[in-house]
Nucleic acid binder design. Sequence first.
DNA 1: AGCTTTGCTATTAAAATTATAGCATCATGA
DNA 2: TCATGATGCTATAATTTTAATAGCAAAGCT
Lengths: 114, 114
Amino acid sequence: MKIPVPGQPVRGSKTGQPIMALLDLLGRSWAMGIIWHLYSGPSTFRDLQEYCESISPNTLNTRLKELRECHLITRTMDGYSLTEYGVELFELLRPMGSWARHSWAKSFENDNQT
Amino acid sequence: MKIPVPGQPVRGSKTGQPIMALLDLLGRSWAMGIIWHLYSGPSTFRDLQEYCESISPNTLNTRLKELRECHLITRTMDGYSLTEYGVELFELLRPMGSWARHSWAKSFENDNQT
DNA sequence: AGCTTTGCTATTAAAATTATAGCATCATGA
DNA sequence: TCATGATGCTATAATTTTAATAGCAAAGCT
């Protein structure tokens, strides 16, 4: 799968608008989950595999490569880890956690209606 | 594809933590793109098809169903439109636009090094 | 030297996505 | 009233992603 880079054609934008490149990148399976997880600290490949219960090593490796080429994660002696950019992005993602829990999840409470 | 609902097992969480359900939902092709686009106003099915250059009607329809069941979009007389929740979510997504443009995209400028 | 952990590759199967054609419904206008 | 066009899809088949599983090479104990 082609790695989405700002300035190059990506899913959703022929001119590669940065936001579209980002949405393309993050809209791949496990991409956001990996970032979410790494915020709590560096992880080895096997740790990530375990965390992402159903990911295959191929997909994990592909995703890690993409995120590395896009400067969001890097390899350290402790394993994979967020870069400065990765942390910035996580901080934009973080509010989604409380919103999901406190606002969005509530909207499902009455779903068993007629 | 199973629709991710908070409280039910989803990709990344057997107990269905809301954030994991949300990341599962948004990590599907075009999901965030659709939300991003609809913020600028309601769109017909065909409009969305055109906007998402390479989406197939099957996928678009699947995605629309998912987003509807998850209360993020709804159908109005003007076409598909964000719900209150959809708007809230967009507002969490929005900062990613300027971050992608002003911060992240810059990180690619020196990529043609050795 | 053996055993374990780690990061991955290889292979195959299943699932998601695309590409394309086209249908049924509705509104408009001649 | 009949054609015309727009709309919201469905059907089908091809292609691409992802998952599932096995296992190997390198490195680090003991």
